[in-house]
Simulated scan of single mutants.
Amino acid sequence: MKVAILVREETMKRCTGKGCLNAFFQRKDAFAGYEGDIELITFSHADGDIDHKIETMIKNGVDVVHLSTCMRGKAPNYEVLAKRLSEHFDVVGYTHGSKEGKGQETIIMKKVTK
């Protein structure tokens, strides 16, 4: 399983990524259900040229994209981004902490098949 984590650019100005990366490498919180080998392919912010980032993730075989917990809590485009990503990947709308969001419900979407 190849995984990407997208975080909020504004948060990355002060965040080290420790929460997201600990959850991934310790297989807890949003990553607790994974079995077998999982590989972190991308750890990037979600701003900038998202189409290019999606193309690169497709080329690198990403299966699932996790939107960071800070995206769920603070990004105004959280739902729109999740829907856009689900055109190509499974999407899990958090990384660490509780599955239930304080302000927004956590989005979990399977890749849209056409």
Rank of each mutant, 00 (worst) to 15 (best):
M1C: 06
V3L: 11
A4G: 07
L6W: 03
L6I: 02
V7K: 12
E9P: 02
E10I: 11
E10C: 04
T11H: 03
K13I: 00
K18Y: 15
G19I: 02
G19L: 05
C20R: 03
A23D: 07
A23F: 11
A23V: 05
A23Y: 10
Q26M: 13
K28N: 08
A30I: 06
G33R: 02
Y34R: 01
E35S: 15
G36D: 07
I38G: 04
T42Q: 10
F43P: 02
H45D: 15
A46T: 03
G48Y: 10
K53N: 03
K53V: 07
I54F: 07
N60L: 10
G61A: 01
V62L: 07
D63K: 05
D63A: 04
D63S: 11
V64S: 07
V64D: 10
V65I: 08
L67V: 09
S68V: 03
M71Q: 07
N77T: 12
V80K: 15
L81N: 01
R84T: 12
L85I: 03
L85Q: 05
E87D: 14
E87L: 13
H88D: 06
H88L: 01
F89N: 08
V92H: 03
V92I: 15
G93D: 08
G93T: 02
G97T: 01
S98T: 09
S98H: 13
S98P: 12
G101N: 04
Q104N: 15
E105L: 02
I107L: 15
I108C: 09
K110H: 13
K111M: 11
V112R: 13
T113V: 15
